[in-house]
Amino acid sequence: MAESITFKFDVDGSDFTSAGQASADVKKNLRQLGLSPEIIRRVSIAMYEGEINMVIHAGGGQAFVTVSENDITILLSDKGPGIKDIDKAMQEGYSTATDNVRSLGFGAGMGLPNMKRYTDFMEIKSVVGEGTDITMRVDIK
């Protein structure tokens, strides 16, 4: 693959149950590009966690997935409330999600840690009151 390909997704913030559409599409696209199942699994889980976060906390946002020869880069961008304490948010088990979200099986405080676990690089840029941009990269071995 000589050139990179970018997929863009709008993440709908209003419907919690439809979250996962973008990650499912990414999974399909990566499969069509012939990437290995383990790479696809890592990218789609990281993406899904990000998508869930945008729905829970930010009222939706946008996702850009770029596939190039050596890596896959995911940019998640939202205009939500921002993350006050990124170090705390990165701790396993820390969550500000509501009981409603917890009753659906999320809000365990594992979203951001999972995104880090499944990617080779992750950077969070967040401004309280303005929004959050998260960049993740998965290297294709």
Partner: peptide
């Protein structure tokens, strides 16, 4: 497991 992110992790 029932906590979905835990399962994914």
């Amino acid at each position: 497991g029932d906590l979905l992110s835990w399962v994914m992790g």
